[in-house]
């Protein structure tokens, strides 16, 4: 009955080897390798903080504490980067691993796992750095932070649900990856990361309700910035959508699986 599990066990060393390879390949020809995964989101947050709070004079309503807006940005970008990293990696994972797929026989389900492993490590490093920075602003970690596992799980589900379907389609229609860079960028701006949702105009505000990433990012804000009890119920919609999308991507993956290597 568990016959199908046998190859999963036999090739178990694939996952650590592949994740290790990914990190090593980043160090291969760059001085600070992995650090870029932390520095890039931080640089992004710094730019927004400078431009929006200093130049445009944006302020975070409700909190008078210094640097509140920077903390708000950092929390949102940490949440967003986990989602977006998994999403973009999923879209390209089959092409990135085409050389391996063509030569080594291994269960293809490993690829999403490798992507997840790499993303969790990166996001963990980013999270630790962000925690240190916001502590300097006086926003200290609390036990409530443990509940962040929930929005993380939800965003992982959403990212895989969308990413695997698009990743499979991208093998056969390479335009997907190009289109998705634009879409992801738009998605970022339709999520309350840089602004708060009450700052959004009525037309954008209405869209935010449908964006499954809105409750995820707001959960981070509630826990880290506002330090209030987060809205657990609000995660129900993105969780259900994520689950449905994962089922869909599982189905597409299963249907496409025999043809994936043929097209690489």
């Amino acid at each position: 009955m568990f016959e199908f599990l046998r190859p999963l066990w036999r090739n178990r060393h694939f996952i650590p080897a592949a994740i290790g390879g990914e990190f090593k390949s980043r160090v291969a020809r760059s001085k600070i390798g992995t650090l870029w995964f932390v520095l890039q989101p931080l640089a992004m947050a710094t730019i927004y903080a400078l431009v929006l709070s200093e130049v445009l004079g944006a302020k975070l309503g409700g909190i008078e504490q210094a640097g509140a807006y920077s903390v708000y940005l950092l929390a949102g970008i940490t949440a967003w980067s986990l989602f977006t990293e998994i999403l973009t990696r999923c879209i390209n994972m089959f092409l990135e691993y085409s050389n391996v797929l063509k030569k080594i026989s291994f269960p293809k389900v490993y690829l999403p796992i490798v992507v997840l492993g790499g993303a969790l490590i990166n996001n963990g490093l980013l999270f630790l750095t962000v925690a240190v920075i916001i502590a300097l602003y006086g926003f200290f970690p609390s036990f409530a932070w443990i509940s962040l596992i929930l929005p993380m799980t939800v965003s992982i589900m959403l990212a895989f649900g969308v990413g695997v379907v698009l990743g499979v389609m991208n093998i056969f229609t390479r335009d997907i990856a190009q289109v998705m860079t634009v879409v992801t960028n738009l998605w970022f701006w339709l999520t309350p990361i840089v602004y708060t949702d009450d700052q959004a105009g009525s037309s954008v505000g209405r869209l935010l309700v449908f964006n499954p990433m809105t409750p995820v990012v707001k959960f981070y804000h509630d826990v880290i910035v506002y330090r209030v009890t987060p809205d657990y119920i609000s995660l129900l919609y993105p969780a259900c959508l994520g689950l449905a999308l994962m089922l869909l991507s599982g189905f597409v993956f299963w249907r496409a699986s025999p043809e994936i290597v043929d097209a690489l």
């Binding site: 090739n11 694939f14 080897a17 390879g21 090593k24 291969a28 050389n99």
Partner: peptide, 21 residues
């Protein structure tokens, strides 16, 4: 065997060897 061109032979043995099981 799915080698990475940036890695040394030794690193590739670790990478592909691991992938091979």
């Amino acid at each position: 065997l799915g080698f990475n061109s940036e890695f040394t032979g030794r690193e590739n043995v670790r990478l592909s060897g691991g992938m091979l099981g």
